[in-house]
């Protein structure tokens, strides 16, 4: 909690380094990435190959998302970075610092104030608005990969809308677990055409993909793929008639802000196995608390 409190109060942010081009990448690279982004926007859900660059961070730490962010940033932007919904985790902090230093852009933890949000594994609870950009970090962009290892074949399957295999995965889930057990990276069909991996967001967030006012961009650095969902695009989670898609979350309310409809993290609080549920979206949670909402374990503070 203390980290959250101090975050906003941090006295100054480091000045922008003059040793790098704006937002680290050179202009040619940014142009190349923007072309890929435009193509992705033009063909919603289609994976556009791009020449992913080496970034000063390891693969798996969001190199794809960082490159997309770098290509989109302008000096007037206000950037928010979240990891599993939180602004204060290592990954989020280091990426935010990275752009503070290389682009000198303003940053924020407030969803509604941000113009560009880079995210790992979540969509903010607060509805996004037109003009905002949401950039997802994607580890494995190919939803068919675990069933069909050949890239040449999966590309052909996308081209020909040969998506029976995707339902085979869901079939296997039901056959083995009695229900569709896939709970994150739940496959979707975008604009009635391409099947897409929404990155490892919980399936709870899937409905927010559809009809979203913001531009949603996806970057996979190691796999060198970019794809996009333009604003107000229909995104449907795959399912069976007799086993319909259900967004799910822990059956509880946030113990800090009392929110009943937000995605929750379960936190073990002591060695005796006591636990609490808290909003995974820290900005949402602190905003609610500031508005006076209180959860089960937060009541004494009111008194």
């Amino acid at each position: 909690m203390t980290a959250r409190a101090t975050r906003k109060a941090r006295p100054e942010r480091p000045a922008m380094s003059e040793d790098y081009n704006f937002a680290y990448l050179d202009e040619d690279t940014k142009r190349m990435i923007r072309r890929a982004l435009l193509k992705g926007i033009a063909i919603p859900g289609y994976q556009v190959p791009f020449a992913s660059r080496e970034m000063p961070m390891p693969y798996g730490w969001g190199t794809g998302g960082v490159q997309v962010t770098a290509a989109c940033l302008v000096p007037e932007d206000r950037l928010k970075v979240i990891d599993q919904g939180a602004d204060d985790t290592t990954n989020a902090v280091s990426i935010r610092r990275f752009f503070e230093r290389t682009a000198g852009v303003a940053t924020t933890t407030r969803t509604r104030e941000a113009t560009l949000i880079q995210t790992r594994h979540r969509i903010p609870e607060e509805p996004l608005r037109e003009g905002q950009i949401l950039v997802y970090q994607v580890p494995i962009p190919e939803p068919l990969r675990f069933l069909e290892p050949r890239e040449s074949e999966t590309r052909r399957m996308h081209a020909l809308e040969d998506y029976g295999l995707m339902h085979v995965k869901l079939y296997e889930d039901i056959a083995r677990h009695g229900e569709i057990a896939t709970s994150y990276a739940y496959p979707v069909r975008v604009a009635g055409r391409h099947v897409m991996d929404p990155s490892p967001i919980p399936k709870f967030d899937n409905p927010k993909l559809s009809g979203n006012a913001a531009i949603q961009l996806f970057g996979a650095g190691r796999e060198q793929r970019i794809y996009a969902v333009p604003p107000w695009t229909q995104v449907v989670s795959l399912d069976f008639e007799d086993h319909p898609f259900t967004p799910s979350k822990a059956d509880a309310a946030c113990d800090l802000c009392g929110a009943a409809g937000s995605y929750l993290d379960e936190v073990i609080t002591d060695d005796a196995g006591s636990r609490m549920f808290v909003c995974s979206d820290t900005d949402y949670c602190t905003t609610r608390q500031a508005e006076g909402h209180r959860g089960r374990l937060n009541r004494e503070e009111v008194a």
Binding site: L165, V168, E172, F240
Partner: peptide, 15 residues
């Protein structure tokens, strides 16, 4: 799943 794949490939959506 092996037998069902072709059905799903042609649009069967009832488990």
């Amino acid at each position: 799943g092996n037998v069902g794949e072709r059905l799903m490939a042609v649009g069967a959506r009832n488990y």
